Amino acid sequence: MTGHRPPPSEDSTTDLVRWAVFSCVLVPVVLVLYGTSLAGATGTALGLAAVTAVCRILLRQSERGAARLAQEARAPHRGHRHRSGGGPRRGGRHTGGSTPVG
């Protein structure tokens, strides 16, 4: 089976978000089972959903920044041309001007 597999960091972020969503559903159910009012459980669910959404946005933004840094580290630096000696105009001895050797 050949398919596109996301990078490990993206995969772990997706798993983290799935667990957070699961918690957003589970926590209010447990609160209602233990006697909290439906309004209180709903408020808790909304609060957890908001925190989860913000964390997801921050994680995605962090992933993009890390990917950008990794890409810059792999890419050659533009504008920096390093020439080493070896050409006719680099290094070596010059034999006095343009007089022919004869």
Rank of each mutant, 00 (worst) to 15 (best):
P6V: 10
D15Q: 12
R93M: 09
H80W: 10
A20C: 04
T13Q: 12
T2G: 10
D11G: 07
L33W: 05
T95F: 15
R68D: 10
A50I: 08
G91R: 13
L38P: 02
P88M: 01
R60F: 13
G91I: 05
R90N: 12
E72T: 09
T14W: 08
G92R: 15
S23H: 05
T99N: 10
R56C: 10
A41L: 02
A75E: 15
T13N: 07
G40K: 02
E10S: 10
R90M: 11
A39E: 12
E63W: 06
S12D: 09
H82G: 06
T13P: 00
T95R: 15
G96L: 14
G85P: 01
H82K: 12
V51R: 03
Q71V: 03
G43E: 03
R78D: 08
S23E: 11
I57L: 15
A66D: 11
A39W: 07
L46T: 12
R56Y: 08
T99G: 15
V51N: 00
Q61L: 11
R90F: 14
S12M: 13
T13F: 11
G35A: 03
A66L: 15
L33E: 02
M1E: 12
E10K: 06
T99K: 14
V21F: 09
R90Q: 14
L59F: 05
G87P: 01
H80Q: 13
R93S: 13
P100T: 13
A20F: 04
V17A: 07
P7V: 07
R89N: 10
G40W: 00
R64M: 07
H80Y: 11
L16E: 07
Q61M: 07
H4R: 13
L33A: 07
L16I: 00
H94A: 11
M1S: 15
L58T: 05
H4N: 14
A73C: 04
G85L: 06
E72V: 09
P76M: 01
R68K: 10
E72W: 09
D15R: 14
G65V: 03
L46M: 13
R90I: 09
R56D: 10
S23L: 14
T36E: 06
V54W: 05
G91V: 01
